[in-house]
Computed example of a mutant assay.
Amino acid sequence: MACSDNEGPINPTAAIDIKKKEFVENYASIVLASYEDAMTKVNELKTAVDIFVTTPNENNFQAAKDAWLASREPYGQTEAYRFYDGPIDGADGEPEGYINAWPLDEALIDYVSDGTGGQDLSDVRQNIINNESEYPTLTKNTLKDISGYSDNESNVTIGFHAIEFLLWGQDNTAPSAKMTGQRAFTDYTTATNSIRRGAYLKVVTALLVDDLKSVVDQWKPSGAYRPLFLAQTADISINMILIGAAKLSKGELAGERMAVAVENQAQEDEHSCFSDNTNRDVFLNAQSIHNIINGTYKRIDGTTIFGTSLITVLQLINATEATSLTTISLEVMTKVTIISNAQYFDNQIMGETIDNFNNPVMSAVLTLRQQGDALAQAGKTITGTTIDPSV
């Protein structure tokens, strides 16, 4: 039978709408996969911590540290799923504030060197581990209730960076290519309050498992959030996606996590200052944005999720903008790879200044800002909604 004369090319608007929906669905699949991978690694961290606290020796201590570092690899690639009141950071900023809050005042948790830490020594809540009279038992609820008290964001008692401090201790050394925090495993054997320190480490790691699981569960197909996210119009979902990516790129990563550290020349402003893992944090956070732009995510088992990307959608509407965003995204990844390979972020920021964009860190900051602006423009082009990429 001959084709009807009425049959013609697909309506361009309909084709764009299809790709928008595919992009949103692919995004949801990538979000779930990356959170599931983070959950797998955090469970492995919990196992390593439990083994170490039960049998505290040098080998088990190192295994716990290695597990913490490994857990940061997938979690770092989830950071672009923020800033739009999704499951990770709702109206009250939870549970993100319980999972990844920083910087923290370590004096609230444990002993610190003289003259360091911002806690008022007259505050009965300081030095939780060594303050048995105020905290006779260390429970999940106790530690969660203290976190953020007095509306002070540095009063962090739980999450990745509390665990990091408990494993590495303070890094009071001058920036050096081979120095991290110098906590000894004997803090969990013969040191004062070693048993309480181990108990704190176990409780805070178990809490991390609980809080991350709450996010994973909401992104499952049967979860409370994902069906609602997919049911709303594609433009609303895309606007949310690009709010997260743009704000992470320009305001959070380029700003709070990189430029502030350069400006203050302070180790305390590093994202992972105790383990000196900030170089990887920078790379992984940038990768999380790159994954969205290109619609791909490589899982910890080596398999890859891929589908319709932001570039695919943008190409249909404004090919020039799509080409520009692709170029900027690749430039970002080139620059953060240099930071990652150089290691030890505190070393890299030494000698850099906030107004000189010719050095590696600030050069990456500049391109991340440009990427944030390009993502905001992509949002306006695709959905007609204005996005402020600053946090």
Rank of each mutant, 00 (worst) to 15 (best):
T192M: 03
D388C: 05
Q232R: 14
Q62V: 10
G8E: 12
V31Q: 13
I18W: 01
L108P: 02
E44W: 13
S275T: 07
W219S: 03
T385D: 14
K247S: 11
P95E: 01
K144V: 05
S133M: 08
R197E: 04
E106P: 03
Q267I: 15
K140Q: 11
A15P: 04
G181N: 02
A33G: 05
A261Q: 08
Y297W: 01
K140G: 10
Y27P: 01
S113L: 14
V31S: 09
K213I: 00
L121T: 12
M1Y: 12
L375G: 07
A319Y: 05
I300Q: 08
G148W: 03
G255C: 10
D276T: 13
L207M: 12
G198L: 07
E106Q: 11
T327F: 13
F83M: 15
E96Y: 11
Y225R: 02
A28P: 04
S329V: 13
Y135A: 01
G117L: 07
H161L: 12
I292N: 04
E44D: 15
L230F: 05
G86K: 09
V260D: 14
F61H: 15
T54R: 04
P175Q: 08
K380Y: 15
D110F: 14
V361M: 04
K220G: 08
R280P: 00
N130Q: 09
L366K: 15
G251Q: 00
F23K: 01
N127E: 08
V53A: 13
E268T: 12
S249K: 06
P389F: 11
L167S: 01
E134A: 15
Y35K: 02
I300E: 01
I238A: 07
K250D: 07
M39H: 13
I354P: 00
A254F: 14
S176W: 01
L121I: 14
R82W: 04
G90D: 03
T381S: 09
